[in-house]
């Protein structure tokens, strides 16, 4: 039934051809896929793009073999707390970060793919607490927000080449809980976050200070917006937001992503581009890289958008083996990782 409903959209040639299946990997020992990601692995002078898969109790590293096949290199066993997500670290080799917890993140761990000290794969604890949001940053850094009954802590930690955590930097927290972070591209010292009362906050994160520079309202029509990407251009701060709880309207359809331009000097903003869910679809769990967004819809399909055009450019229907459960960009938007609940991961060229 679902496949029939999707047929009219797939007949649009652009959408049909814009995703090409490259290869597939299946973890026969896993039946509980939680997340998937890509990571660069450097060993013996060569660098390969590897795939990391997570199920509740373990995380596995896969490397490419000949003929589009994949081989499992190593599996980290994680103990009693379930894995919730893989946290990618941009432009970083041989390092994966994972978040563990029950209803919310209770623990963050580094997984080091290869340690030159003793030729081993190892893991170490980075942080514990009631962690509300976490993001991997450039230069082997990680930012997180966590809450106690009294206060919120926003902290950046960094990791040395040998896998040891360096001293952290504390950022000035806003009053409301921070739900998501995004680095401002091209501005090493600027970081933004979205909060539970729908504000964008901007920090300066240079070595000396963690000042909260500005708080700007997103608008009441889009509660609990999540920031995915931020960049500064012509004196404006552009932020890509998703709206998991926005209501469908006749004029706008069902909003999935918006690009909003903020003037940080005045805190005023204006919508730049708007991307809706395909007609008849609901629900999303999104991933944004550059100007491309991907999300799993409740129908079990994966949708891909060009955020600058505000258009859905590809729709991957549920396969014969079942619904899609995960959609993540690899290190670039040239490669989409599409995961099913049974541990199957398909790599698509976009």
């Amino acid at each position: 039934d679902v496949a029939e409903q999707l047929t009219p959209v797939l007949l649009d040639g652009l959408r049909e051809e814009s995703l090409q299946l490259v290869s597939k990997l299946k973890d026969s020992s896993s039946s509980c896929a939680v997340d998937v990601s890509a990571v660069w692995w450097e060993a013996a002078g060569s660098r390969e793009l590897c795939v990391v898969t997570a199920c509740e109790s373990s995380v596995s590293l896969w490397k490419p073999l000949a003929s589009d096949r994949w081989g499992k290199v190593y599996t980290w066993q994680l103990g009693e707390i379930p894995v919730i997500q893989i946290v990618p670290l941009p432009e970083t080799c041989n390092l994966v970060c994972i978040a563990l917890g029950d209803l919310e993140i209770g623990e963050i761990r580094w997984l080091l793919l290869y340690s030159s000290e003793n030729d081993s794969f190892k893991q170490s604890l980075v942080k514990t607490g009631n962690i509300k949001a976490v993001l991997g940053l450039k230069d082997r850094r990680l930012v997180s927000s966590s809450r106690t009954m009294q206060e919120q802590q926003v902290e950046i930690v960094s990791l040395s080449e040998t896998g040891r955590s360096k001293d952290g930097q504390t950022l000035m927290p806003p009053e409301e809980t921070v739900l998501a972070f995004a680095e401002v591209e091209g501005m090493r010292d600027a970081l933004v976050g979205t909060t539970a009362v729908n504000s964008i906050v901007v920090w300066s994160v240079n070595l000396k200070t963690g000042q909260l520079l500005k708080k700007m309202p997103v608008g009441y029509s889009y509660p609990a917006s999540i920031c995915h990407r931020a960049y500064s251009e012509s004196g404006l701060l552009f932020v890509v937001l998703s709206h998991p709880h926005a209501k469908e309207s006749e004029s706008c359809g069902n909003p999935a992503f918006r690009v909003i331009a903020f003037n940080p000097k005045t805190a005023r903003s204006t919508g730049v581009m708007f991307s809706s869910l395909p007609p008849g679809h609901a629900g999303r769990q999104g991933d944004v890289k550059d100007a491309s967004a991907a999300a799993v819809l409740t129908s079990g399909a994966i949708a891909v958008w060009d955020l600058l055009l505000g258009q859905c450019t590809a729709l991957l229907p549920p396969g014969p083996e079942g619904s899609w459960a995960l959609a993540r960009w690899a290190t670039t938007t040239a490669c989409l990782l599409a995961g099913q609940g049974d541990g199957t991961v398909c790599l698509y060229r976009y």
């Binding site: 501005m187 010292d189 600027a190 901007v202 300066s204 200070t209 000042q211 909260l212 520079l213 500005k214 500064s232 012509s234 004196g235 404006l236 701060l237 331009a261 003037n263 940080p264 000097k265 005045t266 005023r268 903003s269 204006t270 730049v272």
Partner: peptide, 23 residues
């Protein structure tokens, strides 16, 4: 969008806000 909608725009907004922020 026009400048009048968003107010006066500064290319150096980050440096200016950093200088204004209490340390």
């Amino acid at each position: 969008c026009s400048e009048s909608d968003l107010g006066p725009i500064s290319l150096n907004w980050f440096e200016e806000l950093s200088a204004e922020a209490p340390s």
